[in-house]
Computed example of a mutant assay.
Amino acid sequence: MNSPKIGIIMGSKSDLPVMQDAADVLTELGVEYEITVVSAHRTPDRMFTYAREAAGRGIKVIIAGAGGAAHLPGMVASLTHLPVIGVPVKSSNSIDGWDSILSILQMPNGIPVATVALNAAKNAGILAAQIISTADETIVKNLIVFKENLKKKVEESAEEMLKDLK
Score class of each variant (00 low, 15 high):
A55V: 04
G86I: 10
V31L: 08
E32K: 13
A22L: 06
I35R: 14
A114V: 06
G58Q: 06
S133V: 05
F146T: 00
M107A: 12
G65V: 08
I131S: 09
W98V: 14
G11Y: 03
L79K: 15
P112S: 08
K90I: 10
I63E: 10
N149P: 10
P73G: 07
I62S: 05
L72P: 03
V154S: 03
V84Y: 13
P17K: 10
S3M: 11
D45H: 13
M107F: 14
P73K: 09
I35P: 00
G97D: 05
S94N: 06
K60A: 15
L102G: 08
L72G: 01
K153R: 14
M19T: 02
D136F: 00
D136M: 05
E160P: 01
E160N: 14
I62D: 03
V37M: 11
V25A: 04
L79W: 01
S133I: 09
V87L: 11
Y33N: 14
G97N: 11
N2T: 08
K13A: 14
G65P: 02
P73W: 09
V76G: 03
I8P: 00
K152D: 00
G110C: 03
L79Y: 03
A51G: 11
K90S: 12
M47V: 00
P112K: 08
V145G: 00
K163S: 07
T80F: 03
S100H: 02
D24M: 06
I85Q: 11
E28G: 06
W98P: 06
T49W: 01
I101Q: 05
M1G: 05
G67S: 09
Y50C: 04
N2K: 15
A114I: 10
V87G: 11
A77K: 13
I126Y: 08
A120L: 06
L16Q: 13
L102W: 09
V87M: 12
L72H: 03
A121C: 11
A54W: 00
I85C: 08
T115L: 01
A69K: 09
G110M: 02
A70S: 12
V61H: 09
N123M: 06
I95M: 14
T115I: 00
K141H: 07
M19S: 01
A66H: 04
S91A: 15
P112Y: 01
P73D: 05
N149W: 08
I104F: 02
N2H: 03
I131R: 11
V87F: 13
E28R: 13
S94W: 01
S91G: 15
D96Y: 00
K90H: 10
V89G: 06
L72V: 07
I35E: 05
A64M: 07
E159T: 12
S91V: 05
P88E: 04
V140W: 06
A66L: 09
D45V: 10
E34H: 06
A70P: 11
E137T: 10
H71I: 09
L79T: 02
L29C: 13
N119F: 07
N109R: 14
M107W: 12
K147F: 14
V89P: 07
V31S: 11
I9E: 02
G11A: 07
I35W: 03
N149A: 05
I8A: 05
A121R: 12
V84W: 12
A135I: 02
G86Y: 11
S133P: 03
T27K: 15
I101F: 04
R57L: 07
L16C: 01
I8E: 04
K163H: 13
S92I: 01
G7D: 07
A128L: 04
I62M: 07
F146I: 00
A121P: 14
K153D: 06
A40N: 07
